[in-house]
Amino acid sequence: MAAGGDHGSPDSYRSPLASRYASPEMCFVFSDRYKFRTWRQLWLWLAEAEQTLGLPITDEQIQEMKSNLENIDFKMAAEEEKRLRHDVMAHVHTFGHCCPKAAGIIHLGATSCYVGDNTDLIILRNALDLLLPKLARVISRLADFAKERASLPTLGFTHFQPAQLTTVGKRCCLWIQDLCMDLQNLKRVRDDLRFRGVKGTTGTQASFLQLFEGDDHKVEQLDKMVTEKAGFKRAFIITGQTYTRKVDIEVLSVLASLGASVHKICTDIRLLANLKEMEEPFEKQQIGSSAMPYKRNPMRSERCCSLARHLMTLVMDPLQTASVQWFERTLDDSANRRICLAEAFLTADTILNTLQNISEGLVVYPKVIERRIRQELPFMATENIIMAMVKAGGSRQDCHEKIRVLSQQAASVVKQEGGDNDLIERIQVDAYFSPIHSQLDHLLDPSSFTGRASQQVQRFLEEEVYPLLKPYESVMKVKAELCL
């Protein structure tokens, strides 16, 4: 049975990233139509530049190519590739079939990587351009969430054990800070992308030097003109047959890092959902379990974690691919890159769409948070109580021993009897502590235990987050809708 299948058929496997999760716009960027249309555009740009620099290419040939950029006979191309065992030459023939007058000058002087690699770089750039505003929107939604809850005390956790208090907004800023680093890295790697350009079979530009009869300047002009037509500021000066596969490492490393950030955020949300302090959106008709109707599973956060793990592992592909590119190139890269580049971007696209949807509907339960604080705060307040007693004339050592005994009794009630923490009640009825009984409410005010959390939130948002989001103001209103 021949390899390949009808990918629109229910009898043929289709990647869930495309069929179930990723956005239509990201799927289109990695589609065959987008790819092969870009090949034709690159052939047109090459012909236009070659004509401008004096090669015998007519206006009629150029116009014929322009008129057929979208006229792609995919069936013919597939048949040609089956016959020739070469995808680029299959599309040269297919393009030439609908451009008979231009057929002889299509791909003039070029090698397969002229269309293959340059198209990949265009796709990487455009895919990054799709991700950047999506990530900015996630940051914006979380920034709104953090600002609104900047002063809401909550129990902090280290080692997932109760620690000092923080605020809900401050905790959210930990998430935002990681995503801001990801946004900066995505922008950097996007701006650092260079075009492969017009380089020939081993990167020496020998074929173009021959076409222009040894004119170095025209060869350099050709490279520059096509690079500018493709919208790049610069091209690699040095290439082998391909652009260095280190570029793929750079791009997928940034995406993998984004995956790590999203995994951490969504894990926190899942843990908070278990504590009943916070939940992701839950639709009115949504079913959490087929057997347990009360369940409210954090399905979206779980999906993000599941896909983020996949995204983090994909960076190993370009690392290994770059390491086995012998001399000017081997074909070890080809099949692998067809999979890992598309999957990385479709996965990143999915987790950003999902995280935006989550961040637009996060639900906080202040009463649950308050109750958990009441359970733990008495123990945390013991040092403040000791200091207040010393100020009232008591002995630190005597007070410490009193607190120690009462704390152990209260802990026994919590752990052995399943009761509430009654340390404060014990202190309130103990005559030894009568000098500070009137101060206990103040000493137990949760806001006095959150330090500068709310001020940190305000400063972080104003100095770091809002300036970073400013270039994306025009796209901030787009909502994230999930079908599944």
Rank of each mutant, 00 (worst) to 15 (best):
M292C: 02
Q320G: 11
R371G: 04
L131Q: 13
T313R: 04
Q164V: 08
E370S: 11
G104F: 09
T354W: 04
G203R: 00
S306G: 08
K66A: 11
C305T: 09
L275C: 08
H107S: 01
Q397Y: 03
L271M: 07
Q61T: 09
M76H: 13
I139N: 13
Q164E: 00
Y294W: 04
T227R: 07
F160A: 05
I72V: 10
K284V: 12
A273I: 07
G259S: 10
P24V: 12
N297A: 00
A2S: 14
D87C: 00
C113V: 12
L406K: 11
N71V: 11
G109H: 02
M312R: 04
A260Y: 03
A392T: 11
G393F: 07
N185Y: 10
I339M: 11
A344Y: 04
C173L: 05
Q210H: 07
L165A: 00
E462I: 12
E425H: 14
L155W: 02
Y365M: 10
W43L: 07
E417V: 07
G451E: 04
Q61C: 12
A344F: 02
T201M: 00
F28P: 01
E464P: 05
C305V: 06
L443Q: 02
L128P: 03
N353F: 05
V413A: 10
T227D: 02
E250F: 08
D430F: 04
L311F: 03
Q286M: 01
K35H: 13
D87R: 00
G419C: 10
L186V: 13
E280R: 00
L440R: 04
A431G: 13
F433P: 03
I237E: 09
V198H: 04
I62R: 06
S306C: 03
A110C: 08
F157W: 09
Q51S: 11
H107F: 00
Y21K: 01
T158L: 03
R404P: 03
M299I: 13
V262P: 01
Y472P: 07
S323L: 03
A392W: 02
W45S: 11
H217M: 12
G200F: 02
K477Q: 14
K391W: 06
C483W: 08
L130R: 09
R300Y: 10
F236S: 09
I369E: 04
R374Q: 05
V168I: 08
K246S: 04
L131K: 07
T227V: 08
I123L: 14
Q456M: 09
V363C: 05
L331E: 01
Q408M: 05
S454A: 13
R40M: 00
Q397L: 08
S253K: 04
L174W: 12
Q221T: 11
S447L: 15
E462Q: 12
T119H: 04
N353P: 08
